[in-house]
Design a protein around this nucleic acid. Structure first.
Lengths: 215, 215
DNA sequence: GTTGACGTCTCAAATTATGAGACGCTATTC
DNA sequence: GAATAGCGTCTCATAATTTGAGACGTCAAC
């Protein structure tokens, strides 16, 4: 595995190791094999990452992700409170519509899913928290590119993934800037080719309530 | 600031920078001042961390925590599903008892708070998600040290923090090993000096339901 | 117009990180 | 029971990376 990402070798190698461990607990030997790094190097970097609580040792000696990531995730500026505030609104929206809902924020030229409420259907769109998707396709992307007016929704049908349709609306701060996109998504067969028409009202209601609870 | 933690200089310096940024967005100059590192070094490490999406640049040019921590937090082995499963149980427990509840997991000689449901009281115990506390004091610590039997609760009064009392019970896996501690906590004035007597039943009920929903 | 502080960049020098190989332990095989 | 293989851990001479002084451009303040 070519571990070069940034040109700072130790950071590149360390996060190559962390990426392996993020897929599940692994032995030192497995990390050596998967990263292609020298065994002494992997060992030394694992010890250092362990001291920083980015990696931990499970009872059977395997290396696993450390809990420090949990704390760091909650320290992302402004995200913690937004996520906590948004969760009940997404649950309620999914309960009302019967379809999964997601909240996205913009990260450079991508969007990141930060809250998810999944529907009970056996067939449902799965977007895990932390997933990074393009801004170029999907209704949430257009919303986060600031291409909508307040009170307006965007729908997309089969843009990001075949058979899936979605509708999104912007979540704005008190100052009016777009801070997130709230989406409803599901299979076209169920949400129809006009999810905007079908879900605009509950979606915009949820946006209004979320904006109110953010202050 | 002495950045040495593990002896691997680049990791130590990088996480000194990340710790500063975790306290809120900062300029390069502020990071130089707070870490005591050379400006060129901070700049170079910030660019590398940015490429790894551990740091991002906000609109006004400040360095902020990157969203990759959100994804990594959700990839901590087994934690994501446990946290999702636990959340409604903690909300319900807090609703029933009127006091805040928390779920802890063990991390070496510490415990980490992974789910929180806060009560509505103006006076309530605040334990943020990600907080790391000792195993030596507090009811959850004793539980995670595997010092309790199934169906038993542990209470503590003023041990970890003056004026606060808590009661905890072990959450066990299907194989019977302790995987977490569910706690109720609040001011002594309200939860009394015998929180175990007062809350054992709803706490153990919540534990049973949580264990059932974990599989 | 001048000055100071900021972020960005370069590259010679300084320092750290690397990795080959040794070691001890444990499980497996004969 | 002995031999072997593979694991994790550790050392240190060498290789490679990282560092940081200083130059540069930009912008705001005076």
């Amino acid at each position: 595995m070519d571990t070069r990402v940034s040109g700072v070798g130790v950071i590149d190698k360390s996060f190559a190791i962390i990426d392996c461990v993020a897929r599940g607990p692994r032995s030192l030997a497995q990390l050596v094999e998967e990263t292609g790094l020298n065994r002494a190097t992997v060992h030394r970097l694992c010890l250092a990452l362990e001291q920083h609580r980015l990696i931990r040792r499970s009872d059977d000696g395997l290396f696993a992700l450390g809990y420090r990531f949990l704390l760091l995730a909650h320290q992302i500026d402004g995200l913690g409170s937004m996520v906590e505030a948004a969760r009940p609104h997404l649950r309620r929206l999914t309960s009302q519509t019967g379809e999964s809902s997601q909240l996205y924020v913009r990260d450079g030229d991508k969007r990141v899913c930060v809250v998810v409420a999944e529907s009970d259907h056996g067939l449902r769109t799965i977007v895990p928290v932390g997933a990074r998707l393009t801004l170029q396709r999907g209704s949430a992307g257009a919303v986060l590119l600031n291409q909508t007016a307040s009170g307006e929704v965007v729908e997309s049908v089969g843009e990001r993934e075949a058979g899936v349709a979605s509708v999104s609306a912007a979540v704005r701060s008190g100052a009016g800037e777009v801070i997130g996109a709230l989406s409803i998504s599901g299979p076209i067969d169920r949400v129809t080719a006009a999810p905007g028409q079908r879900f605009a009202k509950p979606l915009l209601d949820a946006v209004s309530r979320l904006e109110a609870s953010l202050g």
